[in-house]
């Protein structure tokens, strides 16, 4: 696949809930390895957009197409359900804001990480365990907890486990919904550092939704600013944050409290 192949192509995606336009005519392209941040306040439509992109919600209009490892382009909603589910489990990842939504709380950490491997046919316990250990280390979880269920973990640890669970299958595109929201500030900081490092190392494309501009600046290559369902500004992250053009973007940037 050449560098020019767009990974995710989004064209005129709209989603309404009755009269409310949660997503209004959103279009963009995402290239392999790019991190796109979607920022906006509550009700901006950013989470709705993310869910449409991840095929968790069906848009009312528009096209979303994905290019797989072999260069084949498919309309994700024209795919059959089993294909889409397989895609979501292998090529894609989804990191939920609340890690409990993205984990099996009563299955051990190792089992959580190993699940995607078992789903694609891995049948050697030793290999699965080894992969799980590797990932526990990578997300800086204590190896001794590999046989503990995440129900016993702290929020930050659960989030790390969720990340490992998603990345074990080597996805090319990961969706993240406020991955550090709800965590204590110091825990958040370490998690962001981890995310930043992993994303760079693995060259994975990311669409990350956040209301926190500092998180957006740290992790994203590009930003889209959303308001009332529409994208009001988009561009290079440091450009949008340092030289915002749209009135709303300027308001957002100027509203950040300084420590």
């Amino acid at each position: 696949m050449s560098d020019d192949d767009v990974l995710l192509h989004v064209e005129h995606v709209s989603k309404y809930f009755g009269q409310i336009r949660a997503c209004d005519d959103v279009s963009f392209d995402l290239w392999p390895g790019e991190v796109l941040g979607i920022v906006g306040e509550s009700g901006s439509g950013k989470t709705t957009l993310l869910n449409c992109l991840a095929a968790r919600l069906v848009p009312d209009s528009g096209l979303i197409s994905y290019t797989n490892r072999h260069g084949e382009v498919s309309d994700i909603f024209a795919m059959s359900e089993p294909e889409r589910r397989m895609l979501a489990r292998t090529d894609w990842g989804f990191v939920h804001q609340n890690p409990r939504d993205g984990l099996r709380l009563d299955i051990t950490a190792g089992g959580n990480i190993g699940e995607r491997l078992m789903m694609v046919g891995e049948r050697h316990y030793g290999n699965i365990r080894h992969e799980a250990e590797t990932w526990m280390n990578r997300v800086e979880l204590e190896l001794g907890r590999i046989d503990s269920p995440p129900r016993t973990f702290s929020g930050g640890m659960q989030q790390r486990l969720q990340i490992a669970r998603n990345l074990v299958s080597g996805p090319r595109l990961v969706f993240m919904d406020e991955p550090t929201g709800g965590l204590d500030v110091s825990v958040q900081a370490r998690l962001l550092d981890l995310l930043r490092e992993l994303v760079r190392e693995l060259q994975v494309a990311v669409v990350i939704v956040t209301h926190d501009l500092a998180v957006a600046r740290l992790l994203s290559d590009r930003l889209m600013v959303m308001r009332h369902g529409a994208v009001v500004e988009s561009g290079l992250t440091d450009q949008v944050l340092d030289d915002p053009q749209h009135a709303y973007s300027q308001l957002l940037v100027s509203s950040i409290l300084q420590v």
């Binding site: 051990t108 699940e115 491997l117 078992m118 316990y125």
Partner: peptide, 22 residues
């Protein structure tokens, strides 16, 4: 129903993994 229909049985292996782990 979807798991059976799409033969997405990896989750059964998880149960066996858990036994061995514990």
């Amino acid at each position: 129903r979807k798991v059976h229909a799409y033969s997405e049985y990896g989750v059964m292996q998880v149960k066996l993994y858990e036994d061995i782990a514990r």
